[in-house]
């Protein structure tokens, strides 16, 4: 694993191992914030930023603080604390520079904290024994993958506004079905690059 370049991992994390479509992590904000393309794009960018930042930070903390002291079991609680602090930072940042996005994302901005994709990426980083550059590549790629999936979904939902959806499937139901179809479509990328 260690010889795979960070760029390959980045591409894999976007297409073949999309954290949302292959691991189904981060579904709640994916379902809730995919109604409009600008909001979806804003959340995508925020999640990408948080993912890249937290995997890098968590890498440093895990390998230079927890592992030497034999405290690997603290990873969950420490990762969560790092993520929470980082999201706070992003929140301040977004509020300062884009109040409109800040209010459009509303509760989902602080809820990035409990977005399982974020913690998932940090834990994958540990179980897959990534190096520092690989971790950043993976975090960044997973973020782009999430952003790509949510923007695509927002586009599809916009298109669906004018389609005739059978009543039982309206709302979240059809979104779940489309997510499944999207996941299958993304399987077409399998074999392009390969990571665990």
């Amino acid at each position: 694993m260690s010889e795979t370049s960070a760029l390959i991992i980045l591409i894999a994390a976007i297409f073949t191992n999309n954290i949302l479509l292959s691991n189904f992590l981060g579904m709640c904000s994916f379902l809730a914030c995919s109604r409009q393309i600008p909001t979806a794009a804003g959340l995508g960018v925020a999640v990408t930023f948080v993912l890249a930042g937290t995997t890098a930070l968590n890498y440093v903390i895990y390998y230079y603080l927890l592992a030497p002291l034999g405290l690997e079991h603290l990873q969950f609680i420490v990762f969560i604390a790092v993520i929470a602090a980082f999201v706070q930072f992003v929140e301040m940042f977004v509020e300062r520079f884009s109040p409109r996005l800040y209010y459009a994302l509303g509760i989902f901005l602080p809820l990035i904290t409990v977005n399982c994709a974020i913690l998932g990426a940090s834990l994958f980083m540990v179980t897959r024994n990534y190096s520092f550059t690989q971790s950043i590549g993976f975090g960044f790629g997973a973020g782009i993958g999430f952003a790509l999936a949510i923007i695509l979904m927002a586009g599809l939902r916009k298109k669906m506004t004018y389609s005739n959806i059978p009543k039982p499937f309206q709302g979240v139901a059809i979104v779940m079905i489309i997510t499944g179809v999207m996941a299958m479509a993304f399987m077409g990328f399998a074999g392009m690059v390969n990571i665990q």
């Binding site: 903390i61 603080l65 927890l66 002291l69 034999g70 405290l71 603290l74 609680i77 420490v78 604390a81 790092v82």
Partner: peptide, 9 residues
């Protein structure tokens, strides 16, 4: 160590 590290973080 666990407590110190966590509080430190």
């Amino acid at each position: 160590y666990a407590i110190l590290v966590f509080v430190g973080v």
